[in-house]
Write a protein that binds this DNA or RNA. Sequence first.
DNA 1: CTGTTAGCGCCTTCAG
DNA 2: CTGAAGGCGCTAACAG
Lengths: 351, 351
Amino acid sequence: MRPTIKDIAERAGVSKTTVSFALNDPGRISAETRKRVMDIVAELGYVPDPVARALTTKRHGALGLLLPQPIHEALANPYLCEIVRGIGELCEERGLALTMLPPVKGAVIEAARRAAVDALLTIGVGPGTAVAELLHRRHLPFVTIDGDESATTVNVGIDDEAAAYALMRHILGLGHRRVAVLSLMPESYLDSAGDYSRVSCLRLAGFERALAELGLGLASPGIGVVAVEGSLEGGRQASLRLLSDGGRAPTAIVAMSDAAALGAYEACRELGLAIPRDLSVAGFDDIPNASLVYPPLTTVHQPGLEKGAAAATLALALLAGEAVGHRILSAELVVRGSTAAPRVGAPAPRS
Amino acid sequence: MRPTIKDIAERAGVSKTTVSFALNDPGRISAETRKRVMDIVAELGYVPDPVARALTTKRHGALGLLLPQPIHEALANPYLCEIVRGIGELCEERGLALTMLPPVKGAVIEAARRAAVDALLTIGVGPGTAVAELLHRRHLPFVTIDGDESATTVNVGIDDEAAAYALMRHILGLGHRRVAVLSLMPESYLDSAGDYSRVSCLRLAGFERALAELGLGLASPGIGVVAVEGSLEGGRQASLRLLSDGGRAPTAIVAMSDAAALGAYEACRELGLAIPRDLSVAGFDDIPNASLVYPPLTTVHQPGLEKGAAAATLALALLAGEAVGHRILSAELVVRGSTAAPRVGAPAPRS
DNA sequence: CTGTTAGCGCCTTCAG
DNA sequence: CTGAAGGCGCTAACAG
């Protein structure tokens, strides 16, 4: 058995209290006694049990991140990686650990239940959800990232509607009229599964606003929305399908994630199409790779690092009992080489 | 105050035990009693305290990853990301969370002290270190990744010496005789700071073996080793310095990390040098970007995902009381476009 | 099938 | 300056 505070106390001929003080609040006991205690501590290699300590102090020294998907999937997304890194900055500053909480057997709420952390960050959880309610009941301060803005929940995000509007405007401004949108798959998160996530909705609204300025809409002929997994593979398959659609293939693909956009790159490679000559491609997030691929990807820059850091900061403020409000960070359209005017006269390429 | 098991018990007119059973082991109590209890649980929104639970069960439902550096730095390294993802696969399988434990105020050992996890994975910790000793004292099962192989510690790694040998052989085989090695900065980890990490040593030994076959050594004229930070910036600065060294500039740079190798790319871009015409560059790790940059990077493929998964598997086996041994995964030289024979007759390029 | 009784290991008022 | 005692919230023998 590994030594407990009691063993140290007995061995040193003092009470548990004294040992506790020697460790956590020296100065409240004589230097002499303290030395004796500390010697025993060193000799026995005593290490206070973090759990027992957390039970009484109500402090765990950890921040939690509630994930809507398994860790290996989440970190495959560079954008999420950036968010985690942003949270990491705060951890560094405050000497905290970071616990990533993936759904337990598919249930996010189960992960929320088990979280042994001081404060929690969530990705995409809305205020009305069971998860949010549970967190409130647990009195666990939490901040949502890319979630909803409501009175009961603090959120960090960008103006998705505006960003999407700018992006679509850019595409339409180039002259594209056959545009396919690769939307985000609905999160497994929402209780009312099946719907588009809030972020998707906002972005669709932004796209729609830009289209409306030309008298178009998401349902207009030539325009289309298809939900894909936010991965390279998801984007690739959807693009392959779209581009093989003979004369009705789009001249531009606008994805809600760079990963999916790069999937379109892959599809073009396979079909022998050149970007942006045969197809314009745009993404969302501005992952590190976006500027490294050829041609560099036109996308909306998301401040992932800042988002993570801001969310952690707010959560910690909440924990400290401060009143905090939502935080909207700025996102910017970054026009690079993957978008250009459609080829005039040339019909959509066939595979 | 949020409700405790006691509140539920009183309200339901049963004992705490019964409530506990209703929650954790239904079937040991009558369906009737259980329903009554569960109703109260739902009504009061009771959620068992994970900490209190951990105190008695000795189970935290989490794996820990002891990091030698802050989280935001660690995850900036794609290779580490892959390792984390590998660990994540096991978490998914076993329904565990993953706690990343960065050094607390620079002290890795402090993080090890506070870790409230079922088992720990470490990166680069050797058996003789204070951290390893502490972990043993805590009876915390742990597995090292890229650490030392010893009788007291389980390690997961690759044959670094052999991999480095293969890499250097490739370079020398192309005809290079002026080769600069970008070695890894010593980890802040080791107690006996200042030395090269074990991985660095093994790789250097591999390089040396290849050089020896030609009657050369790491100290021979034309050959040089410089320790750099394992980042793009670290590689860039070192490369800039090396390549500006007039007639003594290397014709090949061999980095111990792809990140540093890509720093050499950056340096070449700034100096107007072409890879591999003016300079051959090789790396280590095979991060996703390695094959995407131009020219694609010659490197040693590290099975990061497998490493993480293997380490987690072993740690869990250790936790289950099974006897396990070290695990050596295979790493392969991947020759791509960044290495070629040096230009004959042409002296090293000047800036 | 259910309740009683102890702890788990630590911190922390309150006395002395 | 130090000790005694209680409690954090839960689980788990052991009885009944």
